[in-house]
């Protein structure tokens, strides 16, 4: 094979399997998966994704913007439907992650219990991805990490009745399926795709931000952790994958810091602001980004770099509890 033939071969071998998958889906169409299922999947993916990204993460954990009570309830309820835990617990773990990112005490660092070699790396990645969820002793005391969320009665209600919201996250796509097809079977496959399949995809995207987002990717800022910007994850994570930017400026409402860094959550927040439904939106201008980048460059980043106190501030007996950590 000459060079040109070789290139053609690679092109065909790359594209043909993809066409095969599409063909397979078309053949299955209307038997096992129909357009109504895709609609249920899409709607639920957007609701749960925004709930986690815009709601749990930017609104609640980092107070990147403020909004009206109904919208705050909507975002928290949507986040609960994602099935990643009650808002209070989620926020407590997340704030702790920022306090001691990639250092002892981080609930989900891929460098946890670091071992050398490929096996050690995979073990670390697995721990950051999902493994940490199964750690029995793990608890981030919400009283220390998020008294502000606890003082919100609505957030306490949603946290307490969390499982009902998860069930609603399965019932709702079932309802969508029923509305579109008018059959009970349609309701069931709708619940399957918009519920279970959607849990799988949406949650693995979030997990990937914790695992891949601290392992593979570009670092714009030499933050004292291993956070990375992962461009290919940006679309499906609604912008959460600009994770190095986020660790550099945790309170920023936008995790994308350039026009080409797609951040759907930031667009939603901007839209709400235009509609006068959001205010106190935290923005970091280019000048400030560059000043901080320069300062970190001198200190040298990475997980061995000096950062916030060795022991999570909120866990010191005399510490005033606050959320000052995140800026």
């Amino acid at each position: 094979m000459d060079g040109r033939e070789h290139y053609t071969f690679i092109l065909i071998s790359a594209l043909l399997p993809l066409f095969g998958v599409v063909a397979a889906i078309v053949l299955l169409w209307n038997k096992l998966v129909g357009p109504a299922d895709m609609v249920a999947f899409g709607i639920m993916y957007v609701i749960a994704g925004l709930g986690v990204s815009t709601g749990y993460h930017r609104l609640l954990a980092h107070r990147a913007f403020q909004t009206t009570r109904p919208l705050r309830i909507f975002f928290a309820a949507a986040g609960a439907m994602a099935g990643q835990g009650p808002p209070i617990t989620w926020v407590a773990h997340h704030r702790r992650h920022h306090r001691v990112a990639d250092k002892p005490g981080d609930p989900h660092s891929p460098y946890h219990d670091e071992e050398p070699g490929l096996k050690g790396a995979l073990k670390g990645l697995w721990h950051a991805h999902m493994g940490w969820l199964f750690e029995r002793g793990l608890s981030s005391d919400p009283m220390r990490y998020c008294p502000d969320i606890l003082r919100d009665k609505d957030m306490r209600f949603i946290s307490k009745h969390f499982t009902w919201f998860v069930l609603a996250g399965v019932a709702l796509p079932g309802l969508i399926g029923f509305t579109l097809t008018g059959t009970l079977f349609g309701a069931m496959t709708g619940a399957l795709w918009g519920g279970l399949v959607r849990f799988f995809f949406a949650n693995h995207v979030t997990y990937a931000v914790n695992s891949i987002g601290h392992y593979f990717g570009r670092r714009r800022f030499a933050t004292p952790d291993e956070s990375r910007n992962v461009g290919w994850l940006a679309l499906f994570s609604f912008g959460e994958a600009w994770h190095n930017n986020h660790h550099a400026f945790p309170r920023s409402a936008s995790h994308g810091m350039r026009w080409y860094e797609l951040d759907i959550s930031a667009l939603v927040i901007r839209g709400l602001e235009r509609l006068k439904l959001a205010d106190h939106v935290i923005r970091i201008d280019r000048e400030r980004q560059e000043a901080k980048a320069l300062a970190w460059e001198k200190l040298g980043g990475g997980r061995h770099a000096r950062s916030t106190p060795a022991k999570p501030l909120a866990e010191r007996r005399t510490a005033a509890v606050g959320i000052v950590d995140v800026e």
Binding site: S139, S140, D141, P142, M143, L150, R151, K153
Partner: peptide, 14 residues
């Protein structure tokens, strides 16, 4: 659980 303790404490506050 820590969540339940905080629920009790902040209900008292309210």
């Amino acid at each position: 659980s820590s969540l339940q303790v905080s629920e009790v404490v902040f209900t008292l506050e309210d």
